[in-house]
């Protein structure tokens, strides 16, 4: 997983794609996850880190994470 080079993410959660002009807003956990993808972490790594840090059941975490990464893919924020 790689973050599209044309994507700028601000600390406030504003995501701007300079190649398409699209902008998005992301909540804090979303920013955290995008940051981890940028640091070349895999989905597995991310899941492990989050499950240690947050009060959440495994199925909910797995589903939420894959859902979010799916959204990032369809928004072309993540390229493979």
């Amino acid at each position: 997983m790689k973050i599209n080079k044309k994507i700028a993410v601000s600390e406030s959660g504003f995501v701007f794609d300079s190649s398409t002009g699209d902008s998005f807003s992301v909540n804090p956990l979303g920013i955290e996850i995008i940051g981890m993808v940028r640091d070349n972490k895999t989905e597995d790594d991310i899941r492990k880190i989050l499950s240690e840090k947050y009060e959440v059941s495994v199925p909910v975490l797995e589903k939420s994470l894959s859902d979010f990464i799916g959204s990032l893919r369809s928004a072309k924020i993540i390229e493979d």
């Binding site: 955290e32 996850i33 009060e55 959440v56 979010f68």
Partner: peptide, 15 residues
């Protein structure tokens, strides 16, 4: 250390 409250990550296109 107590774990943090989990809010599902979301992304929303700004229309």
């Amino acid at each position: 250390m107590a774990k943090l409250h989990f809010e599902r990550p979301i992304i929303k296109k700004l229309n």
